[in-house]
Design a binder for these strands. Sequence first.
DNA 1: CTTGACCCTAAACTTAGCTTAAAGGTTATG
DNA 2: CATAACCTTTAAGCTAAGTTTAGGGTCAAG
Lengths: 137, 137
Amino acid sequence: MKIGELAKRSGQTQSRIRFYERIGLLKLVDRRSNGYRTYPPEALVVLNLIDTAQSAGFTLDEIRQMVPSDLDEWKHDGLLDALRAKVAEIAALEAKLKNSKAQIKRLIAEIEAKPDDMDCKDNARRIMANMLVETTR
Amino acid sequence: MKIGELAKRSGQTQSRIRFYERIGLLKLVDRRSNGYRTYPPEALVVLNLIDTAQSAGFTLDEIRQMVPSDLDEWKHDGLLDALRAKVAEIAALEAKLKNSKAQIKRLIAEIEAKPDDMDCKDNARRIMANMLVETTR
DNA sequence: CTTGACCCTAAACTTAGCTTAAAGGTTATG
DNA sequence: CATAACCTTTAAGCTAAGTTTAGGGTCAAG
């Protein structure tokens, strides 16, 4: 498919897709004789992977380490290894998210745990005092 | 405390602390007659809050909405809403990742249980087709 | 054979979130 | 009273992750 279609189907801009190619993140691309880029359907998979990893807080640099440059490599010897690696990568993503979520939930709990007889002002001060102890300990 | 101590105790650089002040994120600061900044202990809490929120994926702009200048007027409900929204967002991502991981694991099992009557190339094609369906669905 | 919807490149621009540099004032210590 | 270790400001610089712009080619339809 051409870049316009890939953009539409992936929900990403053409400039972004070209940018990913420029920085060596998306290598699944060929050229027609007229210079037009042409993508295999797998490019959609890779773009999706990048997107997911990014929204989980990985930088493009980190993602470049994780995403195999050439899906063709998957077609030969190390396919199982690649898949297992992918599972490990996903586990890493999950760990990162879990961490983030835990932090946020801790904050929420801290804020919600106000006794009813305490107004917002006092509550804020209590949380502050509490966190001060935590963070300076 | 002066900025050097705050920097040491918060683990952040002085330039960063000054930067936060410049963009209106850290207003808990006074000046001595000599021009030196002086901070109350609560500043440490605020810096910690900023740090936590940031590592949870909030931008400084979002954080400024949540943590207003005056701690006594903490926008309690806005903060809670923002935090809950973030948790939901993370949960969605986690679900997506969990799904992907399960699919890949299934594929691994499939490949491992594969009799040798199918050559590597065909097997690979089948797998890619499988992932393509997963990710575009 | 022209018009509009595509595609191309290179380079400049943007935003967020800082850091570094330059040039100087303040203060504690021997 | 020198000197090191603090503090100040303003302005420029940097990295990441793209977007925008300028100036063109390509292609299908009428």
